[in-house]
């Protein structure tokens, strides 16, 4: 097997004096979907946000350990977190489009990074919207405010926005949890599709969602990674008793 895309070693996260994540090690592979599961407050979101250094934005958060992206430690203090985020995109729990036009939303990441000329901009926007399966619905109203879209469309727009900068990894924080079942289904199809091109890490609270979209799962419990492996075997025959209890629905 090839080297992992992201290799996390001994990752711990502290909020002030409180430790939220304990010595997590996990490998994330290229062109695979990794689902992080576990009860709320278990540390799966804390783990996800460490991967693109979002913790740098909050006062009092401290991260130790190492996260190797293609062998380079992105927690190294010489690394610019902005560069990390340009390579590792993120989609959030609630759709959070900017109060700008649909076009400007998708073009935002390209513009801030000066990635493409303005001539190439509209091509990239179209490409990204197609990748997010939104192009057909919005191609005639790219100048309208993104706030006029439905919740599911907004979330697909956020995905288009994230893939527009052609990241190497895509992080998703319960991307379908705020959506209705039909919109959820579309997002899940999209994740499977995108998983063929990117390394994707997705936090989810739904076992069935993890089963539908992911190749691997990691189970978190009280700040620790309890178990990880292939999705099918982990969900069907978990090794650890915390995982068994969780999957049996004994705590949630």
């Amino acid at each position: 097997m090839s080297d992992p895309k992201i290799d996390v070693r001994d990752l711990s996260v502290f909020y002030g004096k409180k430790q939220a994540l304990f010595d997590v090690g996990l490998a994330i592979r290229e062109r695979r979907v990794m689902a992080l599961i576990g009860p709320s407050g278990c540390g799966k979101r804390t783990f996800l946000r460490a991967l693109n250094r979002m913790h740098d934005l909050s006062e009092g958060a401290r991260v130790t350990g190492s996260i190797l992206l293609d062998g380079e430690d992105l927690l190294d203090e010489r690394v610019d977190p902005v560069e990390v985020r340009r390579r590792i995109g993120m989609v959030f729990q609630r759709p959070n489009p900017f109060p700008k036009s649909i076009f400007d939303n998708v073009a935002f990441g390209l513009r801030v990074a000066n990635l493409v000329t303005s001539a190439g901009l509209s091509d990239r926007v179209e490409e990204s919207l197609r990748a997010a399966a939104l192009w057909e619905e919005v191609k005639d109203r790219l100048d309208e405010s993104a706030m006029s879209l439905s919740g599911g469309q907004q979330q697909r727009l956020c995905i288009a926005r994230a893939v527009a900068v052609r990241p190497e990894v895509l992080l998703m924080d319960e991307p379908a949890s705020a959506l209705d079942p039909i919109a959820t289904e579309k997002i899940e199809e999209l994740i499977v599709e995108l998983g063929k091109k990117y390394a994707i890490v997705i936090v989810t609270h739904s076992m069935s969602e993890a089963a539908r979209v992911s190749d691997h799962v990691g189970f978190f419990y009280s700040g620790k990674l309890v178990e990880s492996g292939g999705t099918k075997q982990t969900l069907e025959s978990p090794k650890e008793k915390e995982t068994q209890a969780y999957l049996a629905g004994r705590f949630g």
């Binding site: 979002m54 934005l57 902005v82 995109g89 959030f92 959070n96 489009p97 935002f108 513009r111 900068v165």
Partner: peptide, 22 residues
């Protein structure tokens, strides 16, 4: 909302870009 700042940061915007553009 904080979510807009986070979205901007996650897209690789610098702080001044987040402030002035978002």
């Amino acid at each position: 909302p904080k979510s807009l700042r986070e979205a901007s940061a996650a897209l690789g915007a610098r702080r001044w870009q987040t402030t002035l553009l978002v």
